[in-house]
């Protein structure tokens, strides 16, 4: 594994105009990702982690600072940079096979090569036998497998994953995390995964980038010095996870007084002071827990 930076993000800021005011989603963020590395980005909602991912993938180009991939500035989407979204975003009118083939639509391969790559990729994500199925016939987990296959089929240099397992049930999620790790190890593709699940971040990442909100900044980068594939039960993994949680707690606690001022009623509740983690949890939509600590 070369040590040169494959993806170089330097002093990147991103502001949005919201109701006439300026909202700084990212403030002077710098991050280098090595070729073949698995980097996970974790943080409470509003920390700009998804914004950072979209900038890296080239889906958003309105930023200060520089983003380079393989030495070239990122000025828009590119087939060398794949992306997987939280929702599978499959085309409902196409079969699994043809959805995956969309990833090769503009790639320079012959028809036969494309067919081959698609079949191989479908097998790799465990969807063999479902080539002709339409998205509405798939479960959530299967649909997301197809979404991942579409992102991978072109063998991109870097695959960006935006909370890819966020909408899945715990069992499916754990299985897909394991499979993603296997694919990464086998295919040697650089991966950048955004998540709000600390377990997931620590389990998958070579490094865990912890971000803090308002304005979005990188708080700390925690290396996970454990070889892949990892055992979820490893005590080392657990202690790193606790360390990351501590960092997250300290980042969100800075924010508490402001939130309390905005929501005075929350102080009147007898349960009183929500822990910082729960406070962050309240920010996210209710059906998606911020941290799942009950992974299998």
């Amino acid at each position: 594994m070369a040590s040169r930076a494959h993806l170089r993000i330097s002093n990147v800021s991103r502001r949005f105009r919201v109701n006439g005011g300026d909202l700084t989603a990212l403030d002077q963020v710098s991050l280098d990702v090595r070729a073949g590395e698995f980097v996970t980005i974790v943080g409470a909602s509003g920390c700009g982690k998804s914004t950072l991912l979209r900038l890296g993938a080239g889906l958003d180009v309105e930023h200060d600072g520089t983003i380079e991939h393989d030495g070239k500035p990122v000025t828009g989407p590119n087939l060398d940079r794949g992306i997987v979204f939280q929702e599978p975003r499959l085309f409902p009118w196409l079969t699994v096979e043809r959805n995956v083939a969309l990833g090769l639509e503009n790639a320079v391969f012959s028809k036969a090569e494309k067919r081959d790559l698609v079949a191989k990729q479908i097998a790799l994500v465990g969807l063999a036998g479902f080539e002709k199925a339409y998205p509405h016939q798939l479960s959530g987990g299967m649909a997301q497998r197809a979404g991942i296959a579409r992102g991978l089929v072109n063998r991109p240099d870097v695959l960006f994953l935006d909370e890819p397992f966020g909408a899945l049930d715990a069992i499916t999620k754990a299985r897909l995390q394991g499979e993603l790790q296997d694919i990464w190890a086998r295919e040697q593709i650089t991966m950048v995964l955004v998540t709000h699940d600390v377990d997931e971040a620590v389990y998958l990442g070579d490094r865990v980038v912890v971000m803090s909100p308002r304005p979005g900044r990188i708080r700390q980068i925690v290396p996970v010095d454990l070889p892949h594939p990892r055992a979820r039960t490893s005590s080392r993994l657990a202690s790193i996870r606790n360390h990351v949680l501590d960092i997250l707690n300290s980042t969100t606690s800075d924010d508490l007084p402001k939130m309390a001022a905005k929501q005075p009623t929350s102080q009147k509740r007898p349960v009183a002071k929500p822990g910082p983690v729960q406070a962050a949890l309240h920010n996210k939509s209710a059906e998606r827990p911020l941290f799942s600590t009950t992974e299998i």
């Binding site: 993938a57 889906l59 989407p77 794949g82 975003r89 009118w93 639509e105 503009n106």
Partner: peptide, 27 residues
């Protein structure tokens, strides 16, 4: 919008966007 963004990420041309996304979704 979601699918149009997927097309953007996959570097669809204008013609591909019309033929692959707009027309089928309007079917």
């Amino acid at each position: 919008r979601d699918l149009i963004e997927v097309g953007h990420a996959l570097q669809f041309t204008r013609v591909q966007r019309i033929a692959r996304i707009l027309v089928p979704s309007a079917l």
